[in-house]
Every structure is written in C-alpha cells, then in structure tokens.
Amino acid sequence: MSSLAHRVRFGHALHAEWVKLRSLRSTWYTLACLFAVGLGITVLATGRAGERYASASAAERLAWDPTELSLTTYLVAQLIIGVLGTLVVTSEYATGLVRTSLAVTPRRHRLLAAKVVVAAAVAVVAGQALMFATFLIGQTLLAAQDVPYARLGDPGVISAVMGGGLYLAAIALLAIGLGTILRATAGALTTLVGIVFLVPGFAGLLPAWLEGLLDFWPTMGAAAVFKTVPSPDFPHPWLNLGGMCLGVAAVLAAAFVVFQRRDL
C-alpha cells in the first residue's frame, strides 16, 4: 500500500475527482437547477419592482439597492450549490465507491483535498457566472421599468457581484465539510438548512455573548457583501465574509480529522 500511495500523486487524485464529478448526472442536474431557479427568482424579484418603487416612501427610495435586489437569488442558490458540495462526498458513501477511492488513494488527506479543490473550482465558476447573469438580467428588467438601476462600473457593484460568487463557493465548501463529517446527504443538507436559515431566524433568542457570531454568519453578516448601500448593522461586509470563510475552514479542518481517523 505504501508504494501505491507513493505512486498516486495529488495531480492524479485531482484528475480522478474531476472525472468522477463530471461523470455524475446529478452534477449536471444540480448545475442546471442552479441556473434555472436562480435566474427565475431574479425575474420574479425584479419583474414588478417598478410598482414597488412607485409606492415607496422617501426613506425607502433612499435605501433602494438595485444590485442587492437582483442578487436576492442567493437565498435559494446557496442551498442548491450546497447540494452539489454535499454530493461530492456523500454520493460515494451511498454507492460504496468510497472503498475503491480509498484503495486507489490510500492517503486520505490527499483524497479529500482533491475533492475540495475540484468542488471549489466548480463552485467558484458556477457561482460567479450566476451572480453576473442575475445582475445583468435584473438590471435590464429594472431599466425597462424606468426605475433606478445599476451598472457594473457603479461604486460597489463589482464588489457585490464578485463577493456573491465567493459567498456561494464558501457555502459549497461548508457542505463538503458537513457531508464528510455526517456521511449522509439528508443529514448534511438538514444541517446546512439549519445553519443558513434556522439560526438566523432565532437570532433574537441568542444570549448577548453569542450575538457577535451573527456578524460572520451566512445570510446575516456575511450576506451584507451583496449590498451596495451600506448597512448600519454590518458596515464591513468583506470582514464579515472573511469571518464566515474562517468558520468554513474550521469545519473543513474538522472534516479532515474525522475522515483521517475513522474506518471509512
């Protein structure tokens, strides 16, 4: 086994994981769903924005953020891209292919690292493509309704769009960590839903000493990166997103430890 581990280099593991990921029908179904649902939500969110803007108060018009409006799709997109991240790991446990993968790549940290790198690359490309597409479609619809809209060159717009893609990629990596630790698609996705929706929903019930965590929580402080109008609650969105990425890194570190130590 030691000679096999020596022969299987990280580049080989990367290539194998890429072949496995692109060979799964679920990968392409999930990516198709990501864009279909993501773009559909953008059309729904911006399609009748003219009516809302016409009836808005002066304060609401001052806080009008067309960029955030068109990127609202992230609320659902993060769950879909989370499915993709989860399946990178849990699909092999469901089929038993993980035994073969470990036989070919005995160094477990190398195998999991290859999964993380491949999934991260796909998530970054898909997330950024979705963010740019939703922004352009959303702003086109807003412009057609004769309401204030944004251009890519406007202050804060590129930051919000690029930050949105990184946010989705971080969610995909979080899903990989959860899938590795729990080894079950349903369990990992349930935990992910709890993280991105349930915890923020019960934020008001958290003790005061835990409230600072919300600055770095998905759909809370980290989601401020989607805004171009500064939020008084989260005035440093990139710092918030960085804190979320550190949390994701901690989950991945735990996943590497668990994956290394258990039988499968």
Rank of each mutant, 00 (worst) to 15 (best):
G50H: 06
P66A: 00
D65R: 06
A58V: 15
A56R: 07
D65P: 05
A45Y: 12
T42P: 02
G47I: 09
S57V: 12
C33Y: 12
R61I: 02
P66D: 00
A58R: 15
P66M: 00
T67W: 01
I41D: 05
L62M: 14
S57K: 14
P66V: 00
T46F: 06
A63D: 08
G50Q: 07
P66F: 00
A49Q: 08
A49H: 06
R52K: 14
V43S: 01
R48S: 14
T42G: 02
A58P: 05
G40E: 13
G47S: 12
A45K: 11
A59Y: 02
T46Q: 05
Y53E: 08
E60L: 13
S55G: 13
G38I: 09
R61A: 01
E68P: 03
I41T: 13
G38Y: 05
T46E: 03
A49K: 04
E51H: 09
G38S: 08
V37N: 09
P66G: 02
G38K: 11
W64G: 04
R52P: 00
R61K: 15
T46P: 03
T42Y: 03
Y53K: 10
E51T: 12
G47N: 11
L44P: 00
A56E: 06
E68L: 14
A56L: 10
G47M: 08
T67G: 01
W64V: 05
A63K: 06
L39N: 01
R48P: 03
A54Q: 11
A49E: 05
E60P: 05
A56C: 08
I41L: 13
